[in-house]
């Protein structure tokens, strides 16, 4: 192959890429099945795939639990809600990305020197802080409390937009994984002191990842705003969103790029099942499910899959080996 080394793909990577393209291609066909109900679940899954996967890009390797998803998601929503009279929707999504990146860079530079529980609490407070700032701004400017995003975007288009963003997250995550940055992050996650002593600029690495992760959250908020039609603080900055994203990512497993995805899908379906069958006991049953999950699959769905392939995958591996000519 004549490609430069940085872009050159090994045989195995080519197969992975092909698999990724096929999976996303298959997912993109959902709207053609003409079932609006499943499409609405698909939209949920796509949205949380973006949020959970981009969350894990930062929190997975560094082990910093960030509860700031809602803060950036809300910023994205507010930029679309507030900016719609002045700019077209696609431009606003870009503005949201930019604003998310800028804000997270400032926040990251200020806070990523703290770690552990201090960082968790700070990020949790961040959504509330931004919410109060928005309320204050509305008070000063004398605007109405709710912002209306009345542009009709069909369910199909919404689904494809979110799916496209999810594909972008995977591409970025994959590129980071094979870069020097990704390597540095894995060292930070294992032992930050060792990383510093190896000459890694840990602060910079963490800020870059935090920015990437938060930018995607802001873009998701911007994309979802037309679907929710109405932006108000309690909706845009719901702390529940941050927790949900963390739970889904951890359920899947954060040490593989596709880990959160296998958390989001069963979680969304499980919750849909509980909501439909036991509408009065959703929270109770969900709590019980968490206990079962933590007890029986502590390493997340990824762990389950890896155990399975280790136990029974011998035959499959042999098959793959023959198929790929011994490179697998």
């Amino acid at each position: 192959m004549n490609l430069p080394a940085a872009i050159a793909l090994s045989h195995r990577e080519q197969i992975k890429l092909l698999a990724g393209v096929l999976i996303f291609g298959a997912a993109a066909l959902l709207p053609f099945f003409n079932t609006t109900y499943w499409l609405s679940i698909g939209i949920s899954i796509a949205m949380f795939t973006v949020l959970a996967t981009s969350w894990a890009l930062f929190s997975g390797p560094t082990n910093y639990i960030a509860l700031s998803t809602a803060a950036f998601f809300g910023i994205g929503m507010y930029i679309v809600g507030g900016g719609l009279p002045y700019l077209p929707f696609p431009a606003l999504v870009l503005v949201a990305a930019l604003a998310g990146a800028l804000f997270s860079a400032v926040v990251g530079l200020a806070t990523l020197r703290i770690s552990g529980v201090y960082f968790v609490i700070f990020t949790l407070g961040l959504a509330e802080l931004v919410r109060q700032v928005v309320a204050w701004a509305q008070h000063v400017m004398g605007t109405s409390s709710g912002l209306y995003v009345l542009i009709g975007i069909s369910d199909q288009a919404m689904y494809w937009l979110l799916l496209g963003l999810a594909a972008l997250v995977f591409l970025v995550g994959w590129a980071i994984g094979r870069s020097r940055l990704g390597f540095a992050l894995r060292i930070i996650g294992n032992d930050e002191v060792v990383a510093v002593h190896s000459g890694i600029n840990t602060a910079r690495a963490k800020v870059v990842l935090f920015v990437i992760s938060s930018t995607f959250a802001a873009m998701t908020g911007a994309l979802v705003a037309p679907r929710w039609s109405y932006v108000e603080p309690s909706i845009a900055f719901s702390p529940f969103l941050s927790f949900e994203v963390v739970i889904m990512a951890l359920l899947g497993g954060v040490h593989r790029l596709w880990g959160p995805l296998v958390g989001v899908i069963p979680f969304t379906l499980l919750w849909e099942f509980i909501s439909a069958k036991f509408p009065s006991q959703t929270t109770l049953l969900l709590g019980a499910c968490f206990l079962l999950i933590v007890y029986f699959i502590p390493r997340g769905v990824v762990g389950l899959i890896e155990d399975f392939t280790r136990e029974r995958g011998g035959a499959i591996r042999d098959l793959l080996k023959r198929w790929t000519g011994g490179h697998a």
Binding site: S40, I41, R227, W228, S234
Partner: peptide, 14 residues
């Protein structure tokens, strides 16, 4: 009856 858990995304799905 369904619970939307005070989340617009859930309201839409319900």
């Amino acid at each position: 009856e369904y619970d939307d858990r005070s989340q617009p995304g859930e309201t839409i799905k319900a």
